[in-house]
Design a protein around this nucleic acid. Structure first.
Length: 299
DNA sequence: TCACGTCAAGCAGAT
DNA sequence: ATCTGCTTGACGTGA
């Protein structure tokens, strides 16, 4: 079991996702920005290793406009050695890596342009993991997409498009239940037909629930992961104390977390802590379950 | 110097 | 019809 957090480290003074606007696009600006982002990513990974955090989501903004038509620079070639060095560090320290393309990646969109943009976004994320020379335990996660008032057809469209994806993308690609459109049963049904591994988001499940017990769901989700895909990944959050209803918390509720960990002790998996204060919550989570033997199993 | 409007992109649900 | 959340804070313009 590894515990991690997404994209941003709030202790370090750097960001691996510097703001970069379309109208400022130029090669002269692009190269130093990407250099800065990669250097920062390296620092974050070192911080994580020093703090025993061995799971991390790399930001989709690592290469600004990485999938946009404006991009005319061969960043893959230019930064190849740097990516390789970072990848070596990741492998040497057994860090698990994931990526999560944003809300604009909608593989099952009924708009053809959105669909094409989504493909480009998946290729861009795949390029990064390939450049890092990671294996298929690194994962690219999206939700299923839009419903368009016809869930059955939208699921069919997702499956058709998923099946047509290049193998290079499929090796990394997994889906996750979302908080309002496609619940965990929908994802499991898609997995049955495609073999795609499913990430279980415990908190989305509370918002977009099914009648099944969490433990039963967990069991089915874990079965969708093959050994070569690595340990199953679980996304964890809890409700915002003030804002409530399906809004991510600002800080971790340790008792809630411990309850989840204790209630799932028959299974091993990696946990992404999706809480606003980032590495702080991940560290608290690790410290709260130091005695759990799953934390000490190398995988 | 500082405040605040804006930033590539989609979708669903609330107001 | 428009705004908000997902995300997501930081840049750049204008006062």
């Amino acid at each position: 079991m590894k515990i991690g957090y997404p994209c941003i480290n709030s202790t370090l003074k750097c960001r691996s996702s510097s703001t970069f606007r379309l109208k400022n696009y130029s090669e002269e600006r692009l190269i130093p920005t990407i250099t800065n982002n990669l250097n920062c990513l390296e620092k974050i990974l070192k911080f994580n290793v020093d703090h025993r955090i061995l799971f991390f989501r790399i930001t989709s903004d690592l290469i600004p406009f990485g999938s946009h038509p404006v991009m005319d620079f061969n960043w893959q070639e230019y930064f190849k050695a740097k990516f390789q060095a970072i990848g070596n560090y990741i492998k040497k320290n057994f860090i698990r890596i994931s990526m999560h393309p944003g809300q604009y990646t909608v593989l099952n969109s009924i708009n053809d342009k959105v669909f094409k943009n989504s493909l480009n976004e998946l290729i861009y994320h795949t390029d990064i993991l390939d450049l890092l020379e990671l294996n298929r335990t690194a994962k690219i996660i999206t939700h299923v997409g839009g419903v368009y008032n016809d869930k059955a057809n939208s699921i069919r469209r997702f499956i058709k498009r998923y099946n047509a994806l290049d193998k290079r993308i499929k090796q990394y690609y997994v889906i996750e239940n979302d908080d309002k459109s496609f619940n965990i049963s929908d994802c499991l049904a898609i997995s049955e037909q495609t073999g795609i591994p499913v990430i279980f988001d415990v908190y989305h499940h509370e918002c977009n629930t099914t009648t099944e017990m969490v433990q039963d769901v967990l069991k089915k989700v874990i079965k969708t992961w093959k050994p070569e895909d690595g340990l199953p990944i679980i996304h964890y959050s809890s409700e915002h104390l003030i804002k409530g209803k399906c809004r991510h918390a600002d800080s971790i509720n340790i008792n809630h977390f411990k309850n989840f960990i204790e209630s799932s002790q028959n299974y091993d998996f990696d946990i992404m802590i999706e809480i606003k204060n980032k590495e702080s919550s991940a560290l608290q989570a690790i410290n709260a379950i130091l005695n759990d033997e799953r934390l000490n199993i190398d995988s």
